[in-house]
Simulated scan of single mutants.
Amino acid sequence: MTDAVIASAAPTPPKPSPFHGVKVLWVKHWTDQLFSFAVERPEDFRFRSGEFVMIGLPGEDGGKPVMRAYSIASPAWAEEIEFFSIKVEDGPLTSRLQKIVAGDEVLMGKKPTGTLVLDALTGGERLWLIGTGTGLAPWLSVARDPETYSRFGQVVVCHTVRNVADLAYRDFFTHGIHEDPLIGDEAKAQLTYYPTVTRERFETPGRITDRIKSGDVFADLGLPIGFSPNTDRIMLCGSMHMIKETAELLETYGLKEGSNAEPGDYVLERAFVG
Rank of each mutant, 00 (worst) to 15 (best):
R41Y: 12
R41N: 12
P42A: 13
P42Q: 07
D44V: 03
D44A: 11
D44W: 01
F45V: 11
R46C: 10
R46Q: 14
R46G: 09
R46F: 14
R46K: 13
F47G: 05
F47R: 06
R48K: 12
R48N: 07
G50R: 00
E51Y: 05
E51A: 05
E51L: 04
V53T: 15
M54A: 15
M54Y: 14
I55L: 15
I55G: 05
I55N: 01
G56S: 01
G56M: 03
L57V: 05
L57R: 05
P58W: 07
E60I: 13
D61F: 11
D61T: 11
G62V: 07
G62I: 07
G63Y: 02
G63Q: 08
K64I: 10
K64W: 10
K64H: 08
V66L: 05
M67C: 01
R68I: 04
S71H: 07
S71L: 10
S71A: 10
S71D: 07
I72R: 05
I72T: 03
A73K: 00
S74N: 00
S74D: 01
S74Y: 00
A76G: 12
W77D: 15
A78L: 07
E79A: 14
E80L: 03
E80K: 13
I81N: 00
I81F: 04
E82D: 14
F83Y: 10
F84Q: 01
S85Y: 00
S85M: 10
V88Q: 12
V88M: 11
D90G: 04
D90Y: 06
D90N: 13
G91P: 02
G91H: 04
T94W: 00
T94R: 03
S95H: 01
S95W: 01
S95C: 09
L97I: 06
L97H: 06
Q98R: 13
Q98C: 15
K99V: 00
I100K: 00
I100H: 01
V101G: 11
V101I: 13
A102F: 02
A102S: 14
D104P: 07
V106P: 02
V106A: 04
L107C: 04
L107A: 05
K111C: 03
P112K: 03
T113N: 14
T113C: 12
T113A: 14
G114F: 02
G114K: 02
G114L: 01
L116R: 02
L116T: 07
V117L: 07
D119N: 15
D119R: 13
D119H: 14
A120W: 06
A120S: 15
L121H: 05
L121K: 10
G124S: 05
G124K: 11
G124E: 06
G124R: 07
E125C: 09
E125N: 12
R126E: 11
L127R: 09
W128G: 08
L129A: 11
L129H: 09
T132D: 12
G133M: 09
T134I: 12
T134D: 09
G135Y: 07
L136E: 06
L136H: 06
A137G: 10
P138C: 11
P138W: 09
W139P: 04
W139M: 15
L140W: 08
L140S: 06
L140R: 14
L140E: 07
S141K: 11
S141N: 08
A143K: 04
A143D: 06
D145Y: 00
D145A: 06
E147R: 11
